[in-house]
């Protein structure tokens, strides 16, 4: 039986797809058979972040409607061979993801995979509800910013009432806070909510903190999950998050500003 993990946030643009790509790649790199599923019907983008946009033939909706088998729609990643991508459809019919269809696909994926990562669309409507419904765990992607934190709290409420686990009275969805685009310099200057502030408000366990980094944009430009940028701070922070997701103890890094010394400023050009 697979673990089903939804990457969600409520608010858009906080880094759900970036996180889905990196978490799934990290799990697959450790040898777990992993599939990452794009639930953002109409606005397909996971394929672009995973660099397989030109290999999409069939999609999630084709599988639901019986026009293709799951194996025809799954795309195997070229870098990590235990990683698969299920792209979403670009149809404008948002209801294309029927609850029955989603259930059938998730069940079938659960039989062969160790991890199913569901990349949720923004918002709290149909697509987002479908993405979180079957989840065993949820990664709440949050920016240290008021609207993102408030939306994360809304999504937590929905997970606690509208998920399959909640409706069936099972053990609740395991919640993880992932703080992204964290800027320690601004936190130190009192211009940005700190990790402790967000943890206190949302009151869920911290999975990791991803520092705001130029590497993230550079990686997405190239269709590279940022976790594969192993020398970068953001890549390492995602790797730590994956380790913690698997139960390893890892100390938090990148929480303080990396002040550049006099020499490195001169030799690296600041």
């Amino acid at each position: 039986m697979a673990r089903i993990i939804v990457v969600t946030s409520g608010k858009g643009g906080v880094g759900k797809t970036t996180t889905s790509a990196s978490i799934s790649t990290g799990l697959a790199k450790r040898g777990y058979k992993t599939v990452v599923v794009d639930f953002d019907v109409g606005l397909r983008n996971l394929d672009l972040i995973m660099n397989c946009e030109r290999r999409v033939v069939y999609d999630f909706v084709n599988v639901i409607q019986g026009d293709a088998t799951l194996n025809q729609a799954l795309i195997r990643d070229k870098r990590v061979n235990t990683l698969y991508i299920l792209p979403t459809s670009q149809t404008r019919e948002k209801e294309a993801l029927t609850p029955e269809g989603v259930e059938k696909v998730i069940k079938e994926l659960s039989e062969t995979f160790d991890y199913v990562i569901c990349d949720s669309p923004a918002g709290i409507e149909h697509g987002a509800l479908m993405a979180l419904y079957h989840a065993d765990e949820a990664i709440i992607t949050t920016n240290p910013e008021v609207s993102s934190v408030r939306d994360s709290d809304r999504i937590l409420g929905i997970l606690q009432s509208k998920s399959w686990r909640a409706e069936s009275g099972l053990e609740p969805v395991k919640e993880h806070l992932l703080l992204t685009r964290y800027n320690p310099d601004r936190v130190e200057r009192g211009e940005m909510l700190s990790v402790a502030d967000v943890e206190e408000i949302l009151a869920i366990p911290l999975l990791g903190v991803i520092p705001e980094s130029q590497v993230v944009l550079n990686a997405s430009n190239q269709g590279l999950p940022v976790i594969l940028e192993e020398d970068s701070d953001a890549g390492q922070a995602y790797d730590d998050a994956v380790a913690r997701l698997l139960g390893e103890e890892r100390e938090q890094r990148f929480l303080t500003s990396q002040k550049k010394g006099f020499f490195s400023r001169i030799f690296k050009g600041g």
């Binding site: 008021v146 934190v149 408030r150 709290d153 409420g157 936190v187 211009e191 909510l193 700190s194 408000i201």
Partner: peptide, 22 residues
């Protein structure tokens, strides 16, 4: 008060209110 402190206080109030309604 730093803007982060203001943000935290505002969030604590609105989040508590919305949780109550939820």
């Amino acid at each position: 008060a730093s803007s982060a402190t203001v943000a935290k206080e505002r969030l604590q109030i609105i989040v508590a209110h919305e949780r109550g309604q939820r």
